[in-house]
Write a protein that binds this DNA or RNA. Sequence first.
DNA 1: AGCACGCCGACT
DNA 2: GTCGGCGTGCTC
Length: 750
Amino acid sequence: MRDIPEPEPDRRDDTALNETRPTDTLFGTLEERVVPVLVPLPAERPYSYRVPEGMQVEPGTIVQVPLGPRQVAGVVWDAPTDPVEPRKLRPITRRFDCPPLSTETRRFVDWVADYTLSPPGLVARMVLRAPAAFDPEPAAEGLRLTQARPDRPTSARTRLIETAAHPGEWTRGGLARAAGVSLSVVDGLMRQGVLEPVWLPSHPVVAPPDTGAARATLNPEQGAVAEQLAERIGQGFSVSLLEGVTGSGKTEVYFEAVARALDAGGQVLILLPEIALTQSFIDRFHARFGAEPAQWHSDVAPRTRERVWRQVAEGRVRVVAGARSALFLPFSNLSLIVVDEEHDPAYKQEDRTFYHARDMAVVRGQIGGAPVVLASATPSLESRVNAEAGRYTRHLLASRFADAVLPRLELVDMRRHPPARGRFVSPVLLTAIEETVARGEQALLFLNRRGYAPLTLCRVCGHRFGCPQCSSWLVEHRLRGTLQCHHCGHAERRPEACPHCGTFDHLVPCGPGVERLAEEMVEAFPDARTILLSSDLPGGARRLRQELDAVADGEADIVIGTQLVAKGHHFPLMTLVGAVDADLGLANGDPRAAERTFQLLHQVTGRAGRTGLKSRGLIQTFAPEHPVMQAIAAGEPEAFYQRETIERERAGLPPFGRLAAIIVSADTRREAEEHGRELRRAAPPDDDLEVLGPAEAPLALLRGRHRFRLLVQGPRRAPLQAYLREMTARAPRPRGSVHVQIDIDPQSFL
DNA sequence: AGCACGCCGACT
DNA sequence: GTCGGCGTGCTC
């Protein structure tokens, strides 16, 4: 990790903070202090503000400053500013009573801004996204018993005093309720000075974790890995790749490193993809540490969010479990970062500031001198290559818990075992389902396609229903009676007649979706309990969670699900997993399609067989010879990764993609994609082609490992060309890259 | 990012 | 004749 550039020294040296500069006034020279303040807007440098007489600020102090017509929160920074006319200078409005952002947090903001070519103000904005947290939480007024005693001790008063004598914090209302007296009794005793008001410190948003609450029982292998991870705590920056199949105890193992970091007095951040941040994870944490971690994700109530932010800044919150944005919390003493499910594409943010949270977590660890643990059953190519190259230490958890065994995986060659006409499940899989259900066990059919059918056409005239806004087909959702575009969200009612030729009742669905698969199962196994799990079912996330629990409790025989079944849910009775269309993800033109498909199928088949029952995974494919299918059948990621990546790297080839197209002309991503489709048609068939929007293009150029075809046209041509010239000029500047550049997507090989 | 200013199409 | 579209520019 020596590749992370040191912060450029000149950036700190040439602007002394609280710089004193003489200003000429009518009355002579007046000394005034001017400081750089990073404001939440896309300016390349901090703005300068005057510091009012008597105000103390230092780098990291959070302040309120006037900005045009409004007041905004900014951070006092330590970077040079552009010269500004003295008459434009305005004073800082106030400083918030809030711990200053730590040096590590500030260096992290600078680094991310520099790396992602984002204005530092916008990165700082991600840190400051808890507006009401900069002022201290309003202290609650509590009451405390004094030495004084009432002049006339009535029974109500005596009871009140007895109650108040109990240890603990009492509020006015709470005390009255607990003593069974009215508020006027409390007020009376306050007037007599028997009770006095005290300021209660605000309550911790979560109880402190207890590292000794419940030691996990680890087998020798897990114990050894846990110890190796724990030994890294306090030893400075390192990255450990913790790899193990579903059920191998990764979480329990890294919890031991978390415990060690907490014992050493540090803060811990556990990053999870938003979808994996479930109650079940929180429960597991609670079981180990006797308290919940603070949570940070989009569903956390604003009020709680602010308290978490504040208490992280104060160092009172010790552990945060959060989605990628938790990386920008104002930790002051971060001593361990865990990135669970590190391969998950949800870590990549693709709007505003583009960043990959896994990579930025590594950078944050480097800046703060803290160890980083990346955990996954199916590590990303980047992480595997980094491990191969010795930058990351690899820890392998080979076995599963107890007697649970991995499912036996078989490929079903759909050319040799075709389903019946208009059906999608091969007789081989049908037989397996029948046997499974007969034994009272559960079968899972995985198909990553929502709705009933991905394409509808008219049997009479051949009309195909396409999206009016983009170029994809409309997906029929029979349960809702709609045709929907999964690309742009366009939806319309399913018509009775063909809009082209007017014929009624001759519209035919083509291809399978989960709804259609459910229909097929109900017909084939009318006595079995079939359940459909899809993110678009009515009832929303809560209903879905209930359904998942019901499945785990055995209240279904056949489960049909989209990719949501691959994420973090354990079904103890599941002994058969069928991937209905394993080839599906391979054909979509995504250069990471093979990797994603491998990961998805691996995770789905890993759902089965936690109880020690014999379990099977059947993978329906038309291409059993494809390396992804071979690797899945072997049940060993190695086969796939070596073929797909490492060999390629050894051969001296760019890992993926010989040609990347950059569309710099477009104003919107959609427009860029349209240009991209044209370009893809025109490209030689053996070129791997990546289409990048305008926001990504300069970055890709800067990182430049690929040949680029530039298409520069349209209304913003001139500024973009200038920008690109500037970027190209910057590109040769020797700067290391933290990660092996495996992904042609510039954001992922940061 | 917001927000204001500024120049061209369909209407209370 | 105005209301309103978003293109352009500015914020210490």
